[in-house]
Amino acid sequence: MKNEWPLWEIFIRGQHGMSHRHVGSLHAPDADMAIKNARDVYTRRNEGVSIWVVEAKHISATAPGEKGPLFEPSESKVYRHPTFFDIPEEVGHM
């Protein structure tokens, strides 16, 4: 459709010390307006201290069909977790 504003993905840092988290998307003509709109839409109740905006077309994602090959291999690698190793109680906290 003619002159439809592009879509932006919005990331908000909820508190100092936390990472930015995806909260949703919105339309805006450019990055400045996307930030202004994100402030109005996504931080009306103290939800944020910082905003990132990224035009949606710049985000690449894994395909749902790749889920198995990509993520299943880690399921069998239990030794990557600290709980895999029994440490004798005498050794104390580790």
Partner: peptide
Amino acid sequence: LAKVQDEAGHGLYLYSAAETLGVSRDE
């Protein structure tokens, strides 16, 4: 005013959700 502004936001959240299904908001 705050309530009516919320409604605009709710519309936006929902249009965004619908847009993930391959229809645009303007459409």
